[in-house]
Write a protein that binds this DNA or RNA. Structure first.
Lengths: 212, 212
DNA sequence: TTAGTGTGACTGAGCGCTCGTTCATAATTG
DNA sequence: CAATTATGAACGAGCGCTCAGTCACACTAA
């Protein structure tokens, strides 16, 4: 949480009142997300963002120094939302033999729901200035780290067979990416599987390695 | 092969000599690929593409009707190259208990080598006009289809346990995407695993589901 | 052979326009 | 009043793309 707050504070602003800044930036993000999803970052103009927010262009530039700033705010917000959901899910299923399956189910459901947002991050991270791209990638690592911790805890409790550290890490990455796979191959997968089919099959796949 | 040739023929050109068109377009692709990889499609200008090819801008537009045409040519060329390699690999290991592991090894090695190209397709496919985006996605499906066929053949020969059709399909997607995962998480994974480590671990993972 | 003519690849200055960004000014707040 | 927040016309760099013109060469006619 402190990370996210600090990162927002890093974007300079002309406006003095910090609460106003936070509120306005939330408005900007809410307006920009659907635009970026629909047209992509490059084909969305700052004027469109301003209009969708209900701002004049001048006002937009009081809360943001560049168009890239807006993209960064958007990426941060998306990651925060995903991380919040995943954290919730992981804590709801702390123990037991079926905890992993339940966690996967919850995480994949989040991916299903946030389809467009996850796609957006895959496609536009490269448009960020290096300094912020790094931040966004750190968010991605932290998210996978949540699964690493969860897996380690289950193994410690004897709910999963023992694994080497590097295996745990890779399984965590696989879970993360197979969730994303539903978003970026959905145009094809959804012809053959419902999201529930998909979760069931992939859960079997993941438990396969773990000797389940 | 007919597909690829036909698709190129679809791009109109002012130039009459078809061999010249083919040669010039190959030059354009070769020049554009590193530019797109380095700066992305939107931040590369048509003038830069022309200069890198050794053409005047005017000449570039004799062989291509728009900047998006160039992107499409690039995506086609990349897919052709990947498909060629994968086809080779699949035919080299037609049978036997270890055929799947060998195929995975070859495919992941191709992904490793074509890292930047695969990333490019992930990031820029959305910048294509719908008609061509569809074509590029069809290429993606065809590639996964190669794995479906290979898996089915191995199962028919008794080299792999029987699976439902939908399981085969999903395993094929997983193989495809776990190969891609090395490219778009390499910035992190390469800190912990060499490509060989990665292949070994993931092969175990994939064989897990198949009861290997 | 050579002058004449046609063809098609190639050139690059420049057109028309959009975009991100700024700033003089106005409105609002306390 | 002063300080802060909001406006939107104006700027100008830079973009994709065009098109009037050049040039090398092949073919024809005398």
């Amino acid at each position: 949480m402190p990370t996210a707050t600090a990162s927002k504070r890093d974007i300079e602003t002309q406006v003095k009142n910090p609460e106003l800044v936070a509120r306005r930036r939330r408005q900007i993000v809410d307006a920009a997300v659907p635009l970026f999803i629909e047209k992509g970052f490059h084909k969305t103009t700052t004027r469109q963002i301003a209009a969708a927010t209900g701002f004049s262009i001048g006002l937009l530039y009081e809360y943001v120094r560049s168009k890239e700033d807006v993209l960064y705010l958007v990426c941060e917000a998306i990651h925060q939302e995903v991380e919040r959901c995943v954290n919730d899910a992981l804590q709801r299923h702390e123990r037991g033999r079926d905890a992993l399956a339940a966690m996967i189910h919850e995480y994949f459901t989040v991916c299903h729901r946030m389809n467009d947002h996850i796609l957006l991050i895959y496609q536009e991270t490269q448009s960020l200035p290096p300094h912020w791209r790094k931040r966004v990638l750190e968010n991605e690592v932290r998210l996978t780290g949540l699964f690493v911790n969860a897996l380690a805890r289950l193994i410690a409790h004897g709910d999963l067979p023992k694994l080497t550290e590097e295996s745990i890490e890779l399984v965590a990455h696989n879970i993360t990416v197979l969730g994303h796979m539903w978003t970026f191959r959905r145009w094809f997968l959804a012809r053959h599987y419902s999201i529930e089919d998909y979760i069931t099959l992939q859960t079997g796949f993941i438990l396969g390695l773990l000797g389940g």
